[in-house]
Write a protein that binds this DNA or RNA. Structure first.
Length: 270
DNA sequence: CGACACACCTGGATGC
DNA sequence: TGCATCCAGGTGTGTC
């Protein structure tokens, strides 16, 4: 499910309710998600005040003086803000109960998400090799161009590599490549510097716009207040195989590229 | 190092 | 209606 816009929407939804609050209690309904939930979540986190809520790539970080909780939503995870004590439903895996009487509750049917711990001053190994944030100044076409030299993999796979740029997943990779007029199967190393400059701009624009629409709800993504995202209506290619391109009318094509379904317009993308 | 296949897991849609 | 099959927004790991 969640790519950068959905995680950012989640962050903005929870931050006003979580920042400055004390995590009074942690309720774990299972011992592991993708990985075992570390002891520190039970021992170090309770009693801590959340100073800030941050996002790095598709991870959310709840920073406290004792360390940071590291949350990932995986494919099907979502966080909701609820009144504490409401009965848990299927796949509600943990609650962070706040001193406000609210609880941050994580639901994730597929359990690809995770809840980990990072000590103060340390960088969790999962965050170590991440590429630049797409909405930061460190990300631009020259970075993409330089990193892609000599690469034979499809440019779409290259974009989804979180070492290239973080936050771009299967939906937004297809959408940004459409916007930039680049064929997703083109070898990353064969894309010119000028076209990468355009692509970097389109990645930024698409992500920003998706954030402004509250993300994309395909099946089950909901913001912490229960609102769906509205970017689905703005998709040009993702999930539109066989339908006419909104720009030129050509039938949208789809094919598996790098193990992920990929969509493009043969008329608009070269 | 890069490229690729596979793994994890459940639920919803589709087809017979 | 029931059952089998396929597909899904992510990403670490193992192999070549």
């Amino acid at each position: 499910m969640p790519e950068l816009p959905e995680v950012e929407t989640t962050k903005r939804g929870i931050a006003p309710y979580v920042e400055g609050r004390v995590v009074e209690r942690v309720i774990l309904r299972r011992k592991n998600l993708r990985w075992p939930i570390p002891r520190a979540i039970r021992t170090a986190l309770p009693g801590q005040r959340v100073e800030t809520v941050a996002r790095r790539a598709k991870y959310l970080l709840l920073h406290t003086q004792a360390g940071s909780a590291l949350l990932h939503l995986g494919m099907s995870g979502s966080l909701r803000l609820l009144d504490a004590g409401l009965p848990a439903r299927a796949h509600d895996h943990y609650d962070l109960v706040l001193d406000s009487g609210k609880a941050l509750r994580f639901n994730d049917p597929r359990r690809f998400g995770c809840l980990l711990w990072q000590k103060p001053g340390e960088t969790h190994p999962l965050l170590r090799d991440l590429g630049p944030e797409p909405l930061s100044a460190q990300f631009d076409g020259d970075w993409l161009w330089a990193r892609s030299r000599g690469r034979s993999a499809a440019v779409k796979s290259f974009l989804m590599d979180q070492g290239t740029v973080v936050g771009v997943g299967n939906i937004y990779a297809s959408e940004a490549l459409f916007a930039a007029g680049i064929h997703p199967k083109r070898a990353a190393g064969s894309v010119s510097r000028a076209r990468y400059a355009r692509l970097a701009g389109e990645i930024r624009r698409v992500l920003r716009y998706a954030i402004s629409r509250g993300g994309t709800t395909l099946r089950d993504f909901l913001a912490p207040d229960g609102a769906p995202g509205y970017f689905e209506q703005e998709l040009f290619v993702y999930g539109r195989a066989g339908e006419p391109c909104k720009v030129c009318g050509t039938k949208i094509r789809s094919e598996v590229v790098g193990q992920r379904m990929t969509y493009w317009c043969p008329g608009c993308q070269r």
